[in-house]
Design a protein around this nucleic acid. Structure first.
Lengths: 144, 144
DNA sequence: AATGCAGATGCGAATAGTTCGCATCTGCAT
DNA sequence: ATGCAGATGCGAACTATTCGCATCTGCATT
């Protein structure tokens, strides 16, 4: 499977270095988006040759080659990265503890068609986040 | 109307300084969200005593008092600010020229109820952006 | 297997947006 | 008109991200 990743990288014309292979595997495992720093710290924990600039550069290349998606979440001012999936995902964010949970479907495909018709835009993408307070933090709010 | 704004500020316990009154009026006029720097430059054009730190501080206070909304748009890494309206708004963004146009309705209120039921979250807010290429930029893409 | 080199990495410094510290100034209650 | 809590101006600090440059490495070629 390590060689699968090598093949994926090579097929995109990306040189398969240790760092890139490791980062691609790491991102593939995640269930939610991570920041560059999260990724750096995870990588560093196992392998000590990682450098933060390199993480940023590798992420940038992966984004340009559609291997991963870069986005912002309304909880802070950082960029988040996640592997590109067949079906895109949206997230539910807890504004109290910053928990991030993936939602199972996307309710706005029809809406996009309507907007395209009304505005003449050619729709490329969209971004949806739902913010709330998770059951656990709701308890916290009540008891203090 | 200037005094209306003074009253609004005072009713929230916010001291009605020149800068705050001016910024609140300025934000009230806008049809789309602006960055702190946009706001600073607009203000500076008319009045020369404005300071960027003050703009940030005033915006912060307005946000804390629900007079304005702070958000990020998927076109760059800056924060955007807009006046709080009775009915919230979403935007259609052109990924080529960064045009921002307001959309007239919100398609996901029902979806929120469903998510609340499924996850136990108490939903507080949401964030939706549609990204595309405006009719004008579509032409540009064809001809070059 | 050894070699050469384009491109990748590591490191520190630079940058951009935003926030903070502190001295000075100002709204507004008295 | 006066005093003072809180607001502003200014520059410095901070954080996430990017850049410049010297060194290193994947990999095509021999």
């Amino acid at each position: 499977m390590n060689s699968d990743i090598k093949e994926i990288l090579k097929s995109k014309g990306i040189k398969a270095t240790r760092q890139r292979i490791y980062l691609y595997e790491l991102l593939k495992k995640q269930e939610k988006p991570l920041t560059a720093e999260d990724i750096y710290l995870l990588a560093k924990k196992e392998i000590d040759y990682f450098n933060l600039s390199t993480v940023y550069r590798v992420l940038d290349i992966f984004v340009k080659n559609n291997l991963i998606i870069k986005s912002k979440l309304d909880i802070d001012e950082k960029f988040y990265f996640e592997i590109t999936r067949d079906k895109h995902r949206h997230y539910l964010l807890c504004i109290s503890c910053n928990q991030i949970i993936p939602l199972s479907d996307c309710p706005i495909e029809k809406y996009e068609e309507q907007i395209a018709r009304e505005t003449g835009y050619s729709i490329v993408d969209h971004n949806l986040e739902i913010k709330g307070i998770c059951p656990n933090c709701q308890k916290g709010y009540q008891t203090h």
